[in-house]
Amino acid sequence: MAITASHAPAELAPPEPPRPRWSASEEASGLALISPTLLYAVSLLALPILIVFAYSFWSQDYLTIDRALTLENYRTALFEPMYQDLLGRSLVISLVVSLVTVAISYPIAWFISFHGGRHKNLWLFLITVPCWTSYLLRVMSWKVILGYQGVLNTGLMSAGITDQPIASLLYNSNAVVITLVHSWAAFAILPIFVSLEKIDRSLIEAARDLGDTRLMSFVRVVLPLSLPGIISALLIVMIPTVGDYVTPKLVGGKDGVMIATAIQAQFGKGANWPLGAALSVTTMIVVSAMAGLTVLALKLVVRKIR
């Protein structure tokens, strides 16, 4: 063999310099680059929430904070009928809103993913536009629609369908639910759409090939595979809506007040920070538990039917 893999000449003895491991330097670069953002998020998100947590175990006497640990705030938050009421209603509303939003949004996400053709992006854009417009104005719009002298009533009356305004449209939980469902529609569609897009279309064909009807292939293949999207849609709607402030204030009336109003009150005139903190923490924990249970239930149902 003319030329072989051979040793280089002896004077080229390979150096063995102590080189830093690449993974270590990659790790360092990554951390260095993310550190400004992380620092920001820690100091203005994580830290504040920890402080809320701390406050919830303190108590307040007029303007002085007593740092002796107490569970009194939680006792009030959990057992005071008014707060029980508010928290209960907030949970029910957020549960209903998230379930309804996901249920009515799923077909849209499915439609865009399977029948959106070349214009999927345009469809998605059209879905998201209303979501980015002012939240206040959207809520106000619903007030205009549902009001006693509102669009729906005056419209129905001028169309001759009713001869008296329907008084029960506005200022109750239903109005809150409708408004919130409208506000969060796009947030539910996007994650579901993403998970539908990830489904390999040949899986559906395989299910059909193996004897499933269209409906069966949907229930046994598409639905289980889009479950991650459904779950994130539920979470992304359920958790934020529990603490919604504007919607109950504007369209909820007495009947639709939610916990956020009570939390806000503790930071407003009747300031009781520790109680407000305890209400916040309680809300977060309870809604997380409810979200967890909902996800669990959903997984069980899907496992059953597939």
Partner: peptide, 21 residues
């Protein structure tokens, strides 16, 4: 001139004592 080159990724050895001209 490649002289006795080794390359590790963690415990995985991607290049093992490679010499080549």
């Amino acid at each position: 001139a490649i002289d006795r080159v080794n390359k590790f990724y963690g415990i995985y050895k991607a290049l093992s004592d490679v010499s080549l001209n």
